[in-house]
Simulated assay, not measured.
Amino acid sequence: MSALQNIKYIIIGIVMLGFAKAEAHNPVNPCTKHEPFQVLCDLCGCSTSSGSFGFGTLSNANFIGLRYIYQNFESKNGIFENSPTSKETFNTVQLWAQIPVNESFYVTASLPYQDLTRDFNGIKENLNGLGDANVVGWYKHVFYKKKAENEIDFDNKKVPSGHSLQFGLGIKLPTGQFEQRLTDNINPGFQVGTGSLDGVFSLGYNYGNDSFGVNTLLSYYLKGENKNDYQFGDQFSYAVNFFTAIPKEKMNIMPFVGVSGDIYDPITQYGETLSDTDGNILNFSLGSELAIEKFIFGASYTLPVSQRLFGDNVESKQRVSVYVNFAL
C-alpha cells in the first residue's frame, strides 16, 4: 500500500471518528456560532481539475488542516463510439490553511501532493509528487446594519448585517513537475504540475444568519507559459452554495448544496492554439460539515451535470472530498 493511500485512509478515519464522537455527545466547549460559508479557490495543478473545489470551511474559521480529493476521468482515444478509452484517477492530499493578518485581511495557502494513475489498454501509468502550491491574499469588507434615525446607541457598536464581499489576489507557483511527453495524451491535464506561474483574481459575496447562508465566488486564473513554451488556457470558475446550520448539543452540523463550474480557454504552444483543448463543465455538489470544539470535519460529493471537455473526448465522472481542520 502506498504512502498516499495510508494518508487517505487516515484522513477518512479521522472524519468518521469525528462523526462517531458527535453521536456520542462526548465533546465539550462546542462551537456555537458560525459565520457564512466562505468558498475560496483552490488550484490543483491540472487543467482538468476544477478551480471551484473550494478553499475554506462552512464555519469560516481560520484553520490549518488536511484535505483528500478523489477525481476520476475517462478519455476517448478516437472519434468512434467503440474507440479505446483510458481511465484516469487523480488522488490529491492537500495541506491547506487560512491565516488571519488583521480584522479585514487574511491569507489562504495550499500545498498538494498528487498521485495520478492512467489505465489504457491494460497498461497502467502512475505519476506522483508534489503539486503546484498557491497563495492568495484576501480583503474582506463587512456590511453593517443601518441605525434608525431616532435610535440612540450609547455603545456606538456596529452590528453586522450578514452581508460581506471578498476580494482575492494571488499566485500559483510551479512547484509541481511538468512533463512534455504527457501532452500527447487525450487528457493533457494528466500532469502533477503545470510548470507555470499563474495569477489568481477572485470576487466573492457571502450572506449568512444563525440558520441559513448563501455565497458566490467568481475567479479568473491567468495562466502563464512554462519553460516548454506550453500554456494551459485561462480559466474562469464560479460557485454558488446554500447551507443551513443545525445546532446540536456541544456541536454544530452544517449540510450544504451547491452548483459550480469552470470554463477553459484553449491550450497554446509555441504561439499556436491546440485544437480541442478548451471546454466547460457544470457540477452539482452536496455535503456536510461538523464542528466540535476546535476541530472541523467535512465531506462533499460532486457530480457533473453537463460538460464538454477537450472536444468531448474527456469526461469527468465524479469528485469526493474529505477534510479535517484545526481552528486557529
Rank of each mutant, 00 (worst) to 15 (best):
P84H: 05
W138G: 01
F143I: 10
Q38H: 11
F236K: 07
F295H: 11
E225P: 06
Q318V: 04
L58T: 15
S219Y: 00
T175A: 01
K21Y: 11
K250S: 13
T216W: 04
N226D: 11
K8E: 15
N128F: 05
S285V: 06
N91F: 07
K157M: 10
N29Q: 12
Q180R: 11
S306P: 01
F63S: 08
Q177S: 13
F73N: 04
D234N: 15
L217M: 15
A327T: 13
P188E: 09
G45F: 00
I99K: 08
G129F: 06
H34T: 15
Q235S: 08
H34E: 12
E81V: 12
F256L: 04
D132T: 00
F55T: 10
E315Q: 13
L43R: 11
S104C: 10
N241F: 08
S288Q: 10
L17Y: 11
D276M: 02
K172E: 12
E103G: 06
N185T: 10
V135D: 00
N29S: 12
T92L: 13
A239M: 13
D276P: 00
L274H: 02
G298R: 11
N209Y: 09
S161C: 05
D234C: 03
Q307M: 01
V200G: 01
L274C: 05
S288Y: 10
K147L: 14
V101N: 07
D132C: 00
G204H: 01
A291S: 13
G13K: 07
V214W: 11
S110K: 11
V142F: 03
V240C: 08
I263M: 10
F167H: 04
Y221C: 03
G279M: 03
K317N: 14
F310E: 07
E272D: 14
N62G: 07
G189T: 04
A133D: 00
S59D: 10
K250Q: 14
N228L: 09
N313C: 06
Y144W: 08
P174R: 01
G287M: 01
A61W: 07
S75A: 15
Y70L: 10
Q71D: 15
Q38M: 12
A24W: 09
T216I: 05
Y238G: 15
V214G: 07
E151V: 11
G287F: 00
T273Y: 01
I7F: 06
I12H: 10
L169W: 03
G176P: 01
N283T: 05
